[in-house]
Amino acid sequence: MSVKDMQENWEPKILVFACNWCTYAGADLAGLSRLQYPPNIRILRVPCSGRVNPQFVLRAFQRGIDGVLVAGCHPGDCHYVTGNYFTRRRYLLMQRLLQYVGIDPERFQARWISGSEGPKFQQVVTEITEEIKAMGPNRKMRDV
């Protein structure tokens, strides 16, 4: 495949950190319900959205991911009771910091998706993929 073909056939790579108890179940439900969503996402299951170290997100951008989604249980529903409240605080800051250093806001997002929200998972993933497709590949922070 030539470089030109690669540019034309470019597809975004999107990393989804899915919490084991809600979002992963939500993704599972989307699959069981035969809901179509773009195959651009890579789901990485984590015990809790609170497990997602900001370094994971940075590392993903370095290694060629075009967009990152951190998804977990709705506040109040965390399997570990308080995990996602901490996530919320941490990622409110992290999101602003990433924008401050020039990463586009679309590239890093966080959402609450519960185990029964299969359609929401489909919708969120589709939206993000479309946004990032429109923006093109991420060149910022890339380790190349």
Partner: peptide, 14 residues
Amino acid sequence: PLGHFDKSDPEEFM
């Protein structure tokens, strides 16, 4: 600030 939370923290991730 990052060692505790408040239920009324701003909600932007809905």
